[in-house]
Nucleic acid binder design. Structure first.
Length: 357
DNA sequence: CAATCGTGGTA
DNA sequence: TTACCAAGATT
């Protein structure tokens, strides 16, 4: 007799059928026609897309991916690029340590590996900026290896599929085990992308579309009506508000004074306006203008929220003296070389405030 | 291990 | 307006 439990175990084959019909066309993906013709993705493009996609939405990544791949078509091209060019191209995407590690990684691959990415999980995870998720993703998607990805989507899908109420990150090993048990030997890369697509389009954090989910039959959370409350997460700490000052100095010719921030820490390696430290106290922060001048306070403030604090920035303006002697980390950028899009968003907001005056 | 590290979209 | 969230890595 037919085993009624046969449908109670989720199967990769069901998910892959759904994926073949619903896969989104993405710039780093091989089209179904190409894949049928035996074309495999370029590991460089998979690596680049996966690093950009770390904690970042597909919508935000698309344009950056196009700009990077058209400007630097190969890992060797990227490895040869000046640091400042890469940081400027990454500006606005956030988590700037990714850009610094991207360059480090490209240079290791170009110089130590002859421009060929290692094709194993162990080889990949040893590279800068490649952690457990990204190593698994590249292994599976670019090299057809049976690796299991565990990102936020997979965590959510597994927690619901098996109705796991243990909060993250404690439940992570358990979720990884479930995800690994579902990973097929055939098409592991498509399977990985299918689970993530499922999480991004059907098994969403709020209002999951359980009725049209390919795994609706075996889903334990759907049966228990607990899907929307999963996965549980340990509560986050509240964000403090910090206050700071930035100094916009513009010469009579329209040139701007900027600073390259230190490699470590917030906005590391990026251009920014000279300024004070950002303090927690409501007291006005110690002024630290880059030169003595008649600094004018703009009549509006920058408000910006980082991962773990809110920031209020006061913006001061003065004319940059022609004889100004720049420090080592400072750059006087000519009017026509200055592009606000080269700045991280919080710094661009300060510029926008001036522009609106 | 808990903290750090960006930004934009969404309810 | 606020809080949550997104194809996480590093220390």
């Amino acid at each position: 007799m037919r085993d009624l439990n046969s449908q109670s175990q989720p199967q990769s084959s069901i998910l892959l059928e759904w994926y073949d019909q619903h896969a989104r066309s993405l710039p780093w993906r091989i089209s179904p026609a190409d894949r049928a013709a035996g074309v495999w993705p370029d590991p460089y493009r998979i690596w680049l897309s996966e690093v950009m996609l770390q904690q970042t939405t597909v919508a935000a990544v698309k344009d950056y991916f196009h700009r990077f791949t058209s400007r630097w078509p190969t890992v060797a091209d990227l490895a040869a690029a000046p640091d400042a060019d890469v940081m400027a191209e990454w500006a606005g995407l956030g988590y700037y340590a990714r850009a610094r590690n991207l360059l480090k990684c490209a240079r290791v691959v170009a110089q130590d590996y002859g421009g060929i990415f290692p094709n194993t999980y162990d080889g990949l995870i040893a590279l800068p900026g490649i952690g457990p998720y990204t190593a698994a993703a590249i292994s599976a998607i670019a090299f057809d290896r049976q690796a299991t990805v565990l990102d936020g989507n997979v965590e959510r899908v597994m927690a619901r599929l098996y109705d796991i109420h243990v909060p993250l990150p404690t439940s992570k090993p358990q979720l990884k085990e479930k995800a690994a048990a579902l990973t097929p030997a055939e098409r592991p890369g498509d399977h990985a992308q299918a689970v993530m697509d499922l999480g991004a389009t059907i098994c969403t954090p709020r209002n999951p579309a359980c009725g049209i989910c390919p795994w609706r039959t075996p889903c334990a959370a759907r049966a228990a009506r607990t899907a929307t409350e999963l996965p549980k997460k340990t509560p986050k700490k509240p964000k403090p508000t910090r206050i700071g000052i930035v100094y916009l100095a513009r010469s009579a010719a329209g040139d701007w004074l900027l600073e390259q921030r230190p490699d470590k820490g917030l906005l590391g390696g990026m251009l920014g306006w000279p300024g004070s430290d950002w303090t927690d106290s409501p007291d006005s922060p110690a002024p630290a203008p880059p030169f003595e001048a008649d600094w004018q306070l703009l009549n509006a403030e920058v408000r910006h929220t980082f991962t773990h604090f809110h920031l209020i920035l006061r913006v001061m303006l003065a004319e940059l003296p022609a004889e100004f002697a720049a420090e080592e980390n400072q750059r006087v950028i000519a009017r026509h070389d200055f592009k606000p899009t080269d700045l991280p968003t919080v710094m661009r907001k300060a510029f926008d405030l001036w522009k609106g005056c």
